[in-house]
């Protein structure tokens, strides 16, 4: 019998099962994929919840929101692109753009904190670098979680 991709005809059945699952999950519709990605960005773990992966979704929610909240508790600050001073070829201060990109991955964690003014006034605390690092970690890991939710929605993984 010919395999689905035609590349694994000459390997043993056990190995073939290992690299090509015989019962690949069915892809979700384009609308569900878009919803999963948007939900995963806004509320960490919500993308997995919307796809029925409740355990993963709850775990990601606890870890990402927990890391972001810990960052705020350690006096981390929220970043926003600032204008470069002195002026340079790039209008904005590049490092502030990168930090913003990292933190904004946290979705509502970032937006709610910004709306309530948490972390917008940097305090002279010894722990603020730890706080910033945890907030970057939360946002950047959530980008990977969004990608994972998309993979599940597209039927590329379980």
């Amino acid at each position: 019998m010919q395999s689905r991709d035609g590349l694994t005809d000459n390997v043993t059945p056990q190995y073939r099962e290992r690299i090509i699952p015989q019962d690949l999950p069915t892809p979700f519709s384009a609308g569900r994929r878009a919803l999963a990605v948007a939900a995963a960005w806004l509320i960490p773990g919500a993308g997995h919840l919307s796809l029925g992966r409740y355990g993963r979704g709850l775990m990601f929610f606890v870890l990402i929101v927990g890391a972001f909240a810990l960052g705020l508790a350690l006096q981390g600050r929220l970043y926003w692109p600032t204008v470069s001073d002195p002026p340079s070829m790039f209008h904005f201060d590049l490092i502030s753009v990168l930090w913003t990109f990292a933190q904004i991955g946290g979705g509502l964690c970032y937006l709610v904190s910004y709306a309530f003014g948490w972390g917008t006034e940097p305090l002279p605390a010894a722990t603020n670098e730890y706080g910033n690092t945890f907030m970057f970690l939360a946002g950047l890991l959530n980008y990977l979680i969004i990608y994972d939710a998309y993979d599940i929605a597209a039927g590329r993984k379980r």
Partner: peptide, 26 residues
């Protein structure tokens, strides 16, 4: 404090990365 923070950071990153890795199935 520093080692505690580093351990916590490593633990969070390790849990998420291990969970989303497509090669780890079980």
């Amino acid at each position: 404090m520093h080692v505690l923070m580093m351990s916590l950071y490593a633990a969070i990153a390790a849990i998420v990365l291990a969970t989303i890795d497509p090669k780890a199935e079980t």
